[in-house]
């Protein structure tokens, strides 16, 4: 079972209280972008074995969207953080590096 701490209300929320929102840190390509960029934005997703960043919504609780860093292989949660950011905070990156030295994810590492 997955338990994520909501960074807005501080509740340790059970998976059944949450709604998954797919991959985090997507950059939108809309009007004016090339077809390849638009296709990537719509369809191309990472499918890592290991470190992953996701969006979750505390749907049955405070209703806020937040971001989570976790491992898809062990289900270990490295941390959750505010959705009002374009990149994971350094504390989250450090927590991942401590457990998974040399990790990469997209352009992040």
């Amino acid at each position: 079972m997955l338990t994520l701490q909501c960074p807005y209300c501080g509740v340790d929320a059970d998976e059944t209280e949450l709604s998954p929102g797919g991959e985090a840190h997507l950059k939108r390509f809309g009007p004016g972008s090339t077809d390849e960029e638009f296709e990537d934005y719509l369809f191309a997703r990472q499918n890592p074995k290991g470190v992953h960043f996701e969006r979750w919504r505390h749907a049955y609780g405070c209703g806020k969207w937040f971001l989570a860093a976790r491992c898809t292989m062990t289900l270990e949660v490295f941390g959750t953080y505010s959705a009002q950011t374009t990149e994971p905070p350094q504390t989250i990156k450090d927590a991942i590096t401590a457990k998974r030295p040399g990790w990469t994810w997209g352009t992040l590492s």
């Binding site: 807005y8 405070c62 806020k64």
Partner: peptide, 8 residues
């Protein structure tokens, strides 16, 4: 008064 969320 019931605290519903950080803004509610």
């Amino acid at each position: 008064l019931c605290w519903m969320s950080p803004d509610e």
